[in-house]
Nucleic acid binder design. Structure first.
Lengths: 333, 333
DNA sequence: GCAGGTCTTCGAAGCGCTTCGACGCGAAGG
DNA sequence: CCTTCGCGTCGAAGCGCTTCGAAGACCTGC
């Protein structure tokens, strides 16, 4: 069973090859009757355009690259959610997704771009001083970044508005009447890497707390139960009146609840806890966590849309910040 | 800056286009001097073969599809590990990876195969009665499955030997002198879906325990703290002498430790716990969990190797079971 | 000295698709 | 009635690469 080509379809429908092509692409008007005849033949023969030939002739591969970081400190569930939403959205635009890992580095990006394997690039978890950014500026292929490098000039970046997320938590606790609050953040290594989002959350939190006139401080937090336990204990020892806790660390969120339980503090009666984490984690915890979710799906969808717009040659904003959303559950009052 | 083609390289090196092609593919002998001249030109011009043209002419896209499930019950970290190892291994064979989600279904597989977008398929999390399996049998493109459908006849399947994994846990606990043990498995929905691996673990565990003459039982286990807590409590109430617990559920593993802590059982003094989970989860728990790891990396690497072998036309075994490995940590004695 | 090999390299024919220019034809305009 | 135009369709020229057959150069051995 030889694979069926556009010529087979043309013959079957009794038209020229180019006519079939125009029916399929819609780039020229074709009479309704001819169009239908062609479409019927396509169906009858089970025709699928050859991707390579199409790419060669049209200079469009209809594939985008998705570059995922694969490193400690990343939240896997969020990453998967993101990847899924990218794939799903890309398919809506009739594109496929080539998966790459960050360890291929700038060379890898250059390779897939230069070989015309992909039409555009989507990079996740861009760092403040990312070595790939200069390359992206140079590349003919459009790209969209998740996260912000130091200088987003000339790039297209999407991210959750982490500063707003931090602020939202502080606002929520302030509204509930808490006077002393704190934020437990990502592991120290994340701040050292300068990924940006962690600092921005802290900054937003501290700034909002200050605006409300609250006692607040923010510190990194490791992910093992013991370290979380120690951190929470230290915090409570230092500031006995602390009644509001924000956790921006998915892995630690559950442990914080466990530690409070062991330390004899009830949630939310004694301490209100707000997490910045995916909904599934917040819901699974007990008590269910009031949380600001990282809208991985939105980010992915939005990133693909921007990329598609750029592929069409449209102008897009350099920076897109997605509004965080607070969901109130059982852990705060 | 027009993109450089093989013709540019040929001109620059003063040879025929075909000569350049043969240098690059190594499919015909080329004299050392000519080869070097060509290679120099390639470097000088920064030539990257056009993927579409290459695919069209050679009928090989050098791309494989990776089909990931995106469903509840899957362990995300393992999945990512797996995806990473697939991408990395594929790159070693000079192939790229197209990411697909299971929700594209059989049609999606047919599409990418028929359009010659990919040369082969890698499916994860195949179910006992997977609707995609009949298609795979029919497809000209080779495929490799992770997991086993009911009838693996004519397919190529790879998986951890879950039965051995379950048995290994029982063996370990038996060796330590425990007489009453139990296994807490995946959420009920996983068994209902008939994915296979969960049952096989249970079966291996029960069988090995019986062989050792131990009291053993095995039951599903949900993932929220409260449900885990309840399950553990029930287990302990029913069988006060229980001293060995196997957890085959990454999400629940940490909660089991928390529940035991609350129920006043020390680990490992009162109860030994063994988990079947990725190493990172086992190490992060406190106490660190003795565990049988799911060798996601091995599985990915092996799957890609098999697929590459099939692409070369080599015969490969229908079934490949990867040996589990037990790592003893603090949670068992 | 020449048929027959071997070793390198070349030229050209596609691979399956898109796209540009052109053509035929009936309708509209003068 | 003849020109002009627009619509629908066709043919052919690539897109950049692989691969097959063959040619040229040089050796061998009889």
């Amino acid at each position: 069973m030889r694979t069926v080509t556009i010529a087979d379809v043309a013959k079957h429908a009794g038209v020229a090859v180019s006519t079939v092509s125009y029916v399929l692409s819609g780039k020229r008007a074709i009479s309704a009757t001819t169009r239908q005849r062609v479409l019927d033949s396509v169906r009858a023969l089970g025709y699928h355009p050859n991707a390579g030939a199409r790419a060669l002739a049209s200079k469009r591969a209809k594939v985008i690259a998705l570059v995922l970081p694969l490193r400690a400190g990343m939240n896997l569930p969020v990453l998967m959610q993101f990847a899924t939403s990218v794939v799903t959205t890309a398919r809506q635009y009739d594109h496929d997704v080539l998966l790459m890992t960050a360890d291929e580095g700038a060379d890898g990006l250059h390779r897939v771009a230069a070989s015309a394997l992909v039409d555009g690039l989507l990079l996740m978890d861009v760092e403040i001083h990312d070595p790939r950014v200069p390359l992206l500026r140079k590349l003919a292929e459009p790209s969209v970044l998740i996260g912000f490098p130091a200088d987003p000039e000339g790039l297209t970046c999407v991210d959750l508005d982490f500063a707003r997320a931090g602020a939202l938590c502080a606002d929520h606790l302030a509204d509930l009447g808490h006077r002393e609050i704190a934020l437990l953040g990502a592991p120290r290594v994340v701040y050292e890497r300068g990924t940006g989002f962690a600092e921005r959350t802290m900054a937003g939190f501290v700034e909002a707390a200050r605006r409300h006139g609250l006692e607040a401080d923010a510190r990194p937090c490791e992910e093992s139960f013991d370290e979380v336990h120690a951190a929470v204990k230290l915090l409570l020892d230092e500031r006995p009146a602390l009644s509001g806790l924000v956790v921006h660390n998915e892995a630690a969120a559950g442990h914080v609840l466990g530690a409070l339980r062991i330390l004899g503090r009830r949630v939310p009666e004694d301490v209100s806890v707000v997490a910045i984490c995916p909904d599934d984690i917040a819901e699974r915890a007990s008590p269910a966590l009031t949380s600001v979710l990282i809208p991985a799906e939105d980010v992915g969808r939005q990133a693909v849309r921007l990329l598609m717009a750029k592929l069409e040659g449209q102008a897009v904003p350099e920076s897109t910040l997605l509004e965080p959303r607070l969901t109130i559950r059982e852990s705060s009052r």
